[in-house]
Design a protein around this nucleic acid. Structure first.
Lengths: 302, 302
DNA sequence: TAATTCTTATAAGAATTTCTTATAAAGTTT
DNA sequence: AAACTTTATAAGAAATTCTTATAAGAATTA
């Protein structure tokens, strides 16, 4: 059953089974259903139309079957087992160190496998069943994905001396101009959020930015060089150098913010662990973020 | 797996398997999950609390697995296989003869197994998976059950000479008085509908009726004997004797009516057959019931 | 187009699992 | 306590699934 996850049948022997076994299993299933699941006439073999539905249905069956264990675990109050968690890059470096230690201490039986993935990859892997949950910016409006908001993280501006906004104590969304903001490279939802934010106030088009980078560290450095201001998620501002703290400018409330949620597939497998994660993370973050009045910016991907 | 449907394990050997086999299967499952499914310390052995959840989940798994065949059938445009249909008593005698012949002719591959069941039994069997669909009066407001309205069937009064309403050409809901209406025995939802109807107009309490019967035939005969009026569903009035037709009194529009639906479990198995049934029945009934302006009466059970 | 390589299918026996018959054990009923 | 019912255990039979070995077919290369 699990064989269909990848379609190159031979490669799919990562199921710890030999190729003839797999071949026969599939043949048997095809015969039993009296239908072709795979189109074997093309070079990389493909699923037939029904095949796709069959695989989809097979996933559901496997999910329902796995839930059996969940029921037992719940009954026993047992929280343990493997758990694959995806985290988007702009959340990873700040959030992970905050909760990982406490979580593993509190739930030693859980074997966390954490992967840095962008939002799109998270969604795809959740749908394929290759990920149990993920931490991402929401809302996603994806009907296969359930979202559970953990916290709201305000944006904070980082503005160095030579920038036109440096002298302002507090800034507003209207002050922003996409032209002079340093952004992460394409594909980061934080970038999308910021672009969104700017578009919301002015109706600028989003062409030709100055420079793009994959990490906030770099953005700060570029900014220090006088190449423009940048926007940082609040938690990230907690560990910048003291000497750089003076460049932070908070937004006038309601501050724009991103919504960070734990997301999972709608089949809601391993609910105990998801719940445990939620509790640990939200408990910790509550201590770190005191803001209340906040205005949520959607990540909306293209 | 299917063994759990009935809990007397030995009796559950209707699974065409010997008792030791079942015993061992269950033991194996209990061991694998490391939990007790059955409480063997009582005379008729019972499910443990987890056991109930396990069985429920097992049903879901089986459902999802069965849906595999549905997918294939759908793809092939094949409509066939066993189909267990429940029909409530007050619909059975009039509706069944109308559609059965056409349906079996149109879908010869479907092996229909029809059972007369009251609404409550229908719901229970649908939930247990012992029934594929049923025809009943709706709305039911049961979150496990999906309803698909087939037709609205007006009530028609049957009033003999000696009754106070005999001389009226058309009657209204306000004319009705529970005290002098002959009703079906307790448990029939048609009865509930009528009581409801009367309560809706006046606020009488529903104690001490005169006589109660299990079939409309009897009610008509009792009515002929001058024991009171009665209410009949419209389709039933199509095959009463010509000599009795003169006692029929239609309601002034909007006529009170019952809503008759095909209902099924929310898991929506065998959608093609349910769909085929819906089409055949609604097609036929559309020819028989011309009424438009109708006021729906809910069956609302206690 | 023949040879090489890659991928899927087939065949036969080994290994594992599931089922049955026979029987024991435990619990109820009379 | 004897008769009866119901569930558990044990051992061999039956069925299924898996593996190794090998063939067959398609794509790529020479």
């Amino acid at each position: 059953m699990v064989a269909e996850h990848k379609n190159f049948t031979k490669a799919a022997e990562k199921t710890f089974v030999t190729q003839p076994t797999l071949s026969m299993q599939i043949q048997k299933l095809e015969e039993e259903l009296d239908i072709l699941i795979f189109d074997r006439s093309t070079k990389p073999l493909r699923l037939t139309t029904v095949g796709q539905q069959i695989v989809e249905q097979a996933r559901k069956i496997v999910n329902e079957a796995n839930r059996m264990q969940d029921i037992v675990d719940q009954q026993k109050g047992y929280i343990g087992g493997d758990f694959k968690l995806g985290i988007i890059p702009t959340v990873m470096p700040t959030l992970l160190p905050m909760f990982l230690k406490l979580f593993t201490k509190k739930h030693p039986k859980v074997q966390l496998k954490i992967e840095e993935l962008n939002t799109e990859e998270c969604i795809q892997k959740l749908n394929e069943g290759n990920l149990d949950a993920a931490i991402a910016a929401t809302p996603l409006v994806n009907e296969n994905i359930l979202e559970r908001v953990i916290y709201y993280e305000p944006f904070v501006a980082y503005i160095t001396e030579n920038h036109r906004l440096f002298s302002k104590k507090e800034i507003t969304v209207e002050d922003l101009d996409l032209e002079d903001i340093l952004l992460l490279e394409d594909g980061h939802c934080f970038r999308d959020g910021v672009i969104n934010l700017c578009n919301a106030s002015k109706n600028k088009n989003t062409d030709n930015f100055q420079l793009e980078s994959g990490s906030f560290e770099t953005l700060i450095k570029l900014s220090n060089e006088g190449l423009g201001m940048t926007l940082l998620p609040y938690l990230h501002t907690l560990d910048i150098k003291d000497s750089e703290k003076k460049y932070l400018r908070y937004f006038k409330e309601p501050s724009p913010a991103r919504e960070v949620s734990i997301i999972q597939h709608k089949s809601e497998l391993k609910p105990q662990i998801v719940d445990a994660l939620y509790k640990v993370i939200s408990g910790i973050v509550r201590g770190a973020i005191a803001f209340q009045d906040v205005k949520i910016i959607s990540p909306t991907k293209k």
